[in-house]
Amino acid sequence: MFTNKDINFEALKRKAYNGRWATLEEGIIPLTAADPDFRMSSEIEQGIIEYIKDGYLSYGPFSGIPEFKKSVAEHFNTEKNGNFTPDNVLAVNSAAQGMFLIAKYVLKPEDEAIILDPVDFLFKKSVDAVGGVVRLCPVDINGNIDFEKLVSLINPKTKLISICNPHNPLGKVYSKEVLIKVSEIAAAHDLWVMSDEIWSDIIYDNKEFNTYSSVSDAAKKKSFTVYGFSKTFGIAGLRIGAVLCNDQEVLDDFTEKSNFNSTIEGVSTLSQIAASVAIEKAKPWFKEFLNHLQNNRNLAYKTLSNSQILAPNLPEATFVLFPKIKNNMNSEEFTRHVLQHGKVAVVPGSERWFGKGAEGHIRICFSTSQEILEEGLDRIIKSF
C-alpha cells in the first residue's frame, strides 16, 4: 500500500510544491517539506465526492460545521486524553493560521513570547507578524527543555509560552510530567500557553500522548491547542486545522476577535468534511501509514548510524529526522553539496527554518516509499 508503485510521480510533479517534486529539476529526490508522497485515503476521496453530489456548496456555520467540531473533539478525547466538547473547537484554515491567530490574540506589540530553540520557523514568524518579541528557550538534541533557562526568560513583558508537541524537528513527545511542569510555571506567572499538536497522531512505539490542556487544571485554564490534518492524512492542499480551548468564554472571544463570526473569515465546508471523514473513516489507512513510517524511521536511523557523514537522532514521533553533520560543513553548505553532487534536496538546520540552535544539522523527511528513501540516503552518503 505504501510502495513505489503506490506513488503517482506525475501527479506529484504537477501538484507537490513547497520545495518538493513540482519545484525541483528532473532527477532530484526531495526529502524536504513534511508532506507525504502518497495519495490521500480513498475514504477521504469518496467523502468529498459524496458531499458535492447534490450540487450544493453553501455557507456553513462560521466557527465550523457540527460534524467537524464533533469529530475533532472526539478524536482528542479518545486518542490524546483530552476533555473537549464540540463547542471547544474552532475550524481554521490550517494549524499555521491557528498559531498566528493565537499570537495576535495574546500579544500586543513589544509583548514577549518564549519559544523553543530549535523549533519550526512558524513559531517565530507568528510572533514577529504581530509585533511581539521572541525569547528562545534551548532544548537539547533529544528535545529536553532547559527549565532553568525557561524561568529566567520570564519578565513582566512575557505573555506566552509556546510548545511544539511532538517536537518538529526533533521528534520528542513530551511526558505528562514535563507538561505539568510547563503548566505550573505558566500559572505562577499568569502566562498563556500555546501547544502545537499537529504531529500528535504520528507517534511511534505506542508511546502515550497527552494533549496539553488535559494534564492539570492550570493547563486547562489558560491555553490554546493547535491541530491540523496535513501530516496525518496528506491533505495539506485543503488548508484545514483547528484551534481548541477548554474555556468557552475565551474561545468565543477569540472567535469574535479573529473574525470567525462572519463571512470575513471561515473555512471551506469541503475541507471540513474531508477532515471529518478522515477522522471517522480513514484510521485503518492511517494505521498502515504509521506502520510504514515507523519502518522508514528505523531504516533511516540504521543507514545514517552506519555512515561517516551524519549522526542521526531517533525520533519518538513525526516523520522527520534531524541528524547532526559530522564533517566541518555548516548546514547551508551541506545542503548545497548534497543537492549538487547527490541530487537530493533536504532542509538545512539554519536559523531561518528552525532557529539558532539548529545549526550543524539537516532535516530529512521520510514520508515516502522505502525505495525512494533508500535511494535518497544512499545518494547523500555517496556524494562525499
Rank of each mutant, 00 (worst) to 15 (best):
K5L: 11
K5M: 02
K5P: 01
N8D: 15
F9L: 07
E10Y: 15
A16E: 09
Y17R: 13
Y17G: 08
A22I: 08
L24K: 02
P30I: 07
T32P: 06
D35H: 11
F38L: 00
R39E: 11
G47I: 05
I49G: 01
Y51E: 12
K53A: 14
D54V: 09
L57P: 09
L57G: 10
Y59Q: 14
P66K: 05
E67L: 11
E67R: 12
S71D: 14
F76T: 01
T78F: 07
E79P: 06
F84I: 01
D87E: 13
N88T: 12
N93H: 12
Q97N: 09
F100C: 09
L101E: 10
I102S: 02
I102A: 05
I102R: 00
A103K: 06
E110A: 13
A113D: 00
I115P: 04
I115H: 02
V119Q: 09
D120S: 15
D120G: 14
G131W: 05
V134L: 08
R135H: 12
R135W: 08
V139G: 03
I141L: 13
I141A: 14
N142Y: 15
N142L: 14
F147P: 02
K149D: 03
I154L: 08
K159C: 06
I163N: 07
P166E: 01
P166D: 04
P166Q: 00
V173M: 00
K176Q: 12
V178C: 05
L179K: 07
V182Y: 01
I185R: 06
A186T: 05
D190Q: 09
L191S: 00
V193W: 10
S195W: 03
D196K: 00
E197F: 00
I203G: 02
Y204K: 13
N206P: 03
E208G: 05
E208K: 10
F209K: 05
F209R: 07
S214G: 03
T225M: 13
V226R: 01
G234A: 09
N246P: 07
D247H: 02
Q248C: 08
E249V: 14
V250F: 03
L251P: 04
D252A: 14
D253C: 09
T255M: 06
N259K: 15
F260R: 06
F260V: 07
I264D: 08
E265C: 12
S268C: 10
S271M: 11
A275D: 12
S276M: 06
K281W: 03
K283A: 06
P284S: 05
F286A: 00
F286R: 03
K287D: 14
E288D: 11
N291F: 13
N291H: 12
N298P: 04
K302M: 11
Q308K: 15
I309W: 04
I309G: 02
L310T: 06
E316R: 01
A317P: 08
T318R: 02
F319M: 08
L321F: 04
P323Y: 11
K326W: 06
K326M: 11
M329V: 04
S331W: 04
E332K: 10
V338I: 11
H341T: 14
H341L: 03
G342I: 04
K343Y: 13
K343R: 15
G349R: 01
K356C: 15
R363C: 07
F366H: 05
S367P: 10
L373R: 00
I380D: 00
F384Q: 07
